[in-house]
Simulated assay, not measured.
Amino acid sequence: MPPYRLPMYRERPAVRCVNFLCAVLLTLVLVTGIIMFVLWLSLRPHRPRFFLNDFTIPNLNRQSGAVNLPVRFTVDEHNPNQKIGIRYDEIYGSVYYNDLLVASGPVYQPFYQPPKGDTPLQGELTASGPTPSDPAWQRFAGDAAAGSVGLRLLLNSTVRFQVKVWDSKVHHIKVECEFRLGGDGSLQQDYKNRQCTLYF
Rank of each mutant, 00 (worst) to 15 (best):
L25I: 06
G185S: 10
P13S: 07
P114K: 04
T27Q: 00
I34K: 05
Y92V: 15
V75Q: 03
L151N: 05
Q162P: 00
K83Q: 12
G117R: 03
A145N: 13
D134E: 05
L154G: 02
P45W: 04
L41N: 10
W166T: 09
L101D: 00
M8L: 13
L121E: 03
A144V: 09
P130Q: 02
A23K: 08
R10Y: 10
V24K: 02
Q195V: 12
S64E: 14
L25W: 02
P48I: 04
G33W: 01
P45A: 08
T197I: 14
V71H: 02
T158L: 06
C177I: 03
L21P: 00
V38T: 05
F111R: 06
Q162K: 14
F200D: 10
N59C: 09
A103I: 04
A141P: 00
R152Y: 01
A103M: 06
R139T: 14
G182F: 06
I34W: 02
E176H: 07
N98W: 05
V18Q: 07
Y96F: 15
L41K: 13
L6W: 05
T32W: 06
F161E: 05
Y112L: 11
V102D: 00
K83S: 14
F140E: 03
L153H: 03
P135H: 02
V159F: 01
I91T: 13
V18D: 01
Y191F: 15
R49H: 13
L60R: 04
N53S: 13
D167K: 15
W137K: 00
V38H: 02
S157K: 05
A136V: 13
P7D: 12
T32Q: 14
P45T: 08
I34T: 08
T126S: 15
V71E: 03
Y4C: 07
R5S: 11
L52K: 06
R44N: 15
A145C: 03
E178K: 11
V29T: 05
L28V: 14
T119Q: 12
K169N: 12
R44A: 13
V107Q: 07
K116E: 12
C22Q: 09
G182E: 11
R44M: 08
V163K: 03
A127E: 04
L26D: 11
P2H: 08
R10A: 07
F51H: 12
P106Y: 10
S148L: 07
K192I: 12
I173E: 15
P48F: 02
G123R: 05
